[in-house]
Design a protein around this nucleic acid. Structure first.
Lengths: 242, 242
DNA sequence: CGAATCCTTGACAAGATTCAACTCGGGTGG
DNA sequence: CCACCCGAGTTGAATCTTGTCAAGGATTCG
């Protein structure tokens, strides 16, 4: 585990695809500052991973900051007996790996083949002095993550299975739209087991709830990897406790 | 609600007590940089709140950043039907209120009478340019919060009631020790209802679990507001899923 | 084509919630 | 001064949502 795919292990200097992603990630170009992206791309490296490969593990020294160029990644934490909590699903344009000297707080694993950009933490910190806007951006992204974490705590602590699954589908749909995916179906690159561990449920409960939504005409399930939100408004209502 | 106590509404320029708290909060003095604290205290204001007073509400415009000088504060989010998730308990030296233009992501309420330091967000951002170390500190604190949030997700999604309550007691004990409180009893300034909403349980389950711990000799409950961890190691073991 | 893995479905069990009664302690007012 | 009241907490019994265990079906991949 944790090996990088041989085909293109690391390509320093190659321009980062996510820099084209409209500023979603921290390496995106900012207004009136054309110099910064080139400085960043000069220090970033790309890593190409196969599906179900681990990027780093909880407790590993936090050497790099990652940004997803292509593919999907999940973050999770484990209890000693193997119980797992998936804390985030990430897609193109998202970043992860923000950590202090204590090491990464979670394990990061690809769900699909993925192309990641990564930045050495040390070099990035040195660059902060020259480009303060960078650190501001990173702080903003951390605050976004924090808000998402609080929202997930509300879900885990206080929502029913039905509300959790509805929230999950609505969240994926909203984020897919933000990335420009406006097709009828939302992609589910994660397994039922991943979904269960994200929502604090079992795979059986996730499966049963999805089936019930399908029977009620709220969603379509054309195949295991996709869901169609037929009654998105109703799902949003369920997600918020209605 | 949300009124400041009349007795000492705001005292600009008064030195912030938490600046003496050994660098726990972001306004603490750093090595070789005696200038910064004075600049900060020049722009901070103190607010004195009674118990069970709200500091700000979820969605309010994020005008200030807060730091606790004295007292205890809780953060929470609500669902439309009143279900509540407490996302954090905060004590002297802790800070809160980090938010972007979307407004605060949670409501903040005192649990005890509290003395807070607050910094206007606008002015703080202006100061970032002059004192880059400040922004670095804030980013570090945000990363700490993020790690705590992930830990809480693991608790909410995957721990049993017994493990949740044990984790809660151990967490309070560890944080009290960090603040220099080494007495035999850990303070519980929050109500059973707050604890339940923090752990994703009901007050009855919290009460029953505490009683069971007491019967098993793991803890003492001298009064409603205190707990004595008699078997701290065993509690830590339970908290981690043993 | 076969084997393995993932998912779905069903029957049953259990941990936590709900509902309800009771206790305790503090504050108030007769 | 003390009885009363009220809110908070505890305890008990019944219920229920979700988890556990087990079997069957589907999809994928060698």
């Amino acid at each position: 585990m944790a090996q990088f795919n041989d085909t293109s292990a690391e390509i320093p200097g190659t321009p980062c695809l996510i820099c084209e992603h409209g500023g979603l990630a921290f390496c995106g170009p900012g207004p009136g500052d054309a110099d910064e992206p080139s400085r960043l791309s000069a220090m970033l490296g790309q890593v190409n991973l196969i599906a179900h490969d681990s990027v780093f593990r909880e407790g590993d020294p936090a050497t790099h900051l990652y940004s997803i160029s292509q593919g999907a990644v999940k973050l999770y934490k484990l209890l000693s007996d193997g119980r797992r909590q998936v804390t985030a699903f990430l897609f193109a344009g998202d970043f992860f790996g923000l950590a202090l000297d204590g090491g990464y707080a979670y394990t990061a694993e690809t769900m699909t083949p993925a192309l990641l950009c990564r930045f050495p933490r040390r070099k990035l910190e040195a660059l902060f002095a020259e480009v303060p806007r960078l650190e501001r951006r990173l702080l903003g992204l951390a605050i976004d993550d924090l808000a998402a974490a609080h929202e997930q705590m509300l879900l885990l602590g206080r929502k029913t299975a039905r509300e959790k699954v509805a929230s999950f589908l609505v969240m994926l749909d909203r984020r897919a739209a933000r990335r420009g995916h406006h097709g009828p179906a939302v992609a589910l690159p994660m397994s039922r087991s991943d979904i269960a561990d994200y929502l604090g449920l079992t795979i059986e409960t996730v499966s049963r709830t999805l089936t019930q939504f399908r029977r009620d005409g709220l969603i379509g399930l054309p195949d295991l990897g996709h869901a169609v939100l037929r009654e998105a408004d109703r799902l949003r209502q369920i997600a918020d406790g209605g």
